[in-house]
């Protein structure tokens, strides 16, 4: 189990690195250029590319973040492993649902 989580965290990190950079550049571009919410939605609505980009972002982040948080809680606390695992799975589900909901909203 630990090995699979270790590998999953590294692989999702590899995917996330360029996605985060593109996402940050995009935010700066949108704000600097003074795009309104309506203008942003005008570009993302019906655009399968953006939906795919952010779906991948949400899925990898929902895998990556809970694994890291689990490691931190295991190191910092003496909580039973089962509780920590349940907490990590819950966090992953919350990130996934909220994230995918946002993707649906801009598509």
């Amino acid at each position: 189990m630990e090995k699979h989580l270790y590998v999953a965290q590294r692989l999702t990190a590899i995917v996330l690195a360029p996605l985060v950079l593109i996402h940050l550049v995009l935010i700066l571009y949108a704000i600097e250029g003074g795009l309104s919410a309506g203008e942003i939605l005008g570009r993302t609505r019906g655009h399968l590319g953006w939906a795919a980009f952010y779906s991948l972002f949400v899925i990898t982040a929902a895998l990556h973040a809970p694994i890291g948080l689990r490691n931190v809680i295991v190191e910092w606390t003496r909580l039973p492993r089962r509780w920590i695992d349940a907490l990590a799975v819950t966090l992953g589900c919350v990130l996934l649902v909220l994230g995918l909901r946002a993707v649906v909203a801009i598509y």
Binding site: E2, K3, L5, Y6, N71
Partner: peptide, 12 residues
């Protein structure tokens, strides 16, 4: 290898 990668193993 499995034990070295278990809980408290090299991943820590």
């Amino acid at each position: 290898f499995k034990m070295a990668f278990g809980e408290g193993g090299c991943g820590s």
